[in-house]
Design a binder for these strands. Structure first.
Lengths: 212, 212
DNA sequence: CGCACCGTTGATATTAATCAATTTGGGTGG
DNA sequence: CCACCCAAATTGATTAATATCAACGGTGCG
């Protein structure tokens, strides 16, 4: 939970539960994840937690920090994480090409968040889990980290619950239902999706809709 | 529902239910709302609807369109709307100062959306409504459109339901509970918040947390 | 070997959705 | 001004989805 950030050159790594950023603390760098998963979340006073964003390999954590904005939510490693530090001057110093990348990154984030608003606001447990697993797979695939129909899936059911706004118990039961319907295979941190289209259908995502 | 966009100079206006933008159609301009309310939403195949963003006076609708991104969600007027058209060249043509404004706008949107992810994922009907009414009031106040403790609130209970991920019936009952507890006064499209701090408390928002 | 953490199960409680009227209120045309 | 109309708000009864509470089993690791 505590401990030093291990820096080697412009790289650093984090252990599970270690913070990449804390609320209100100006980060000294912007991280691009090379390996591992991290998330940003918010905690309510009574302990309820909602994960509001997931960072997978290739992702730049919070590009708008480059403009001097400070994190309003903590970012924490879910697994071991290797990251590259993109140093940023105190206000708005990023190369012109990175700027373009940041725009793209931000608009994708808005798009993904909007999709999750729909899912959390209007969808059932089954649809939420389908959405999550699809998004994970498609994002992993997009960064070349899928193998056929499968990819790594290091999240615990507790973390899945905090992403989908459900309880761990209900996540467990719903996953069982999905498994028994042959929608997904999920065991020992590994996800396999036998029929993407079927899962997409269950998730209630329009065929055009971007997930990754 | 249909009809022409009324343009006069670089201004235009829309009637309730008229589209400011449709899915997948490249907009010919980016709109800054001068008066009235609009929203963006997504519709599920079975008719469920989730509003994913609200545009109030002063807001720039979707700044990232300026970069050639196309709308992935429709934007529709909730009331009569007057707007200024900020024309944009086919790809990425906005003045340098507007660019800064767009960044700010985008990061605010991400922040607001993240807050709503928490609310939709983890909060009760009462907390959701408190969040919504607070946000509305604070945003209206921020643009000088509040009068003491009150401001306009043109949304129907149906629209409130589509923002908060509830049913209209449940919104109705929860609002009654809030009224009877003296948390809000809400009638004939007008909102009054007798005690901001109390409502903030009910909404379960950290005191630091930005709403507007 | 034992301690954690994770996944699983069963029983019950709550919240919110659903279904079906009924009432209210603002606008419109006669 | 009044009658009418339609959308919005309200109410009541019931059901469905999910949370909560409390164990229990498995597994990796020090």
């Amino acid at each position: 939970m505590s401990g030093q950030i291990a820096v080697s050159g412009s790289h650093c790594h984090f252990r599970p539960h270690q913070f990449l950023a804390r609320e209100d603390e100006q980060p000294e760098a912007i991280f691009q994840i090379d390996e591992g998963w991290a998330c940003r979340y918010r905690l309510l006073s009574d302990g309820r937690r909602q994960i509001t964003g997931l960072f997978l390999p290739g992702d730049i954590c919070e590009p708008h920090w480059a403009l001097g904005t400070r994190p309003t939510q903590p970012i924490v490693a879910l697994t071991n994480v290797r990251a590259t530090c993109l140093p940023c001057s105190t206000h708005g110093g990023l190369a012109r090409e990175s700027e373009r990348a940041c725009w793209k990154n931000l608009t994708e984030m808005i798009e993904r968040q909007a999709n999750w608003l729909v899912t959390l606001g209007r969808k059932t447990a089954l649809e939420r889990l389908a959405h999550l697993l699809l998004e994970l797979f498609e994002r992993m695939r997009a960064s070349g980290l899928s193998y056929g129909q499968q990819c790594a899936m290091p999240l615990t059911q507790m973390e899945i619950a905090d992403m989908t706004g459900l309880t761990p118990v209900h996540v467990n039961r719903t996953l069982q239902a999905m498994r028994s319907r042959g929608l997904v295979e999920l065991q020992s941190k590994w996800l396999r999706i036998p029929d993407l289209a079927a899962l997409r259908d269950v998730a209630g995502l329009s065929s055009r809709q971007t997930i990754a």
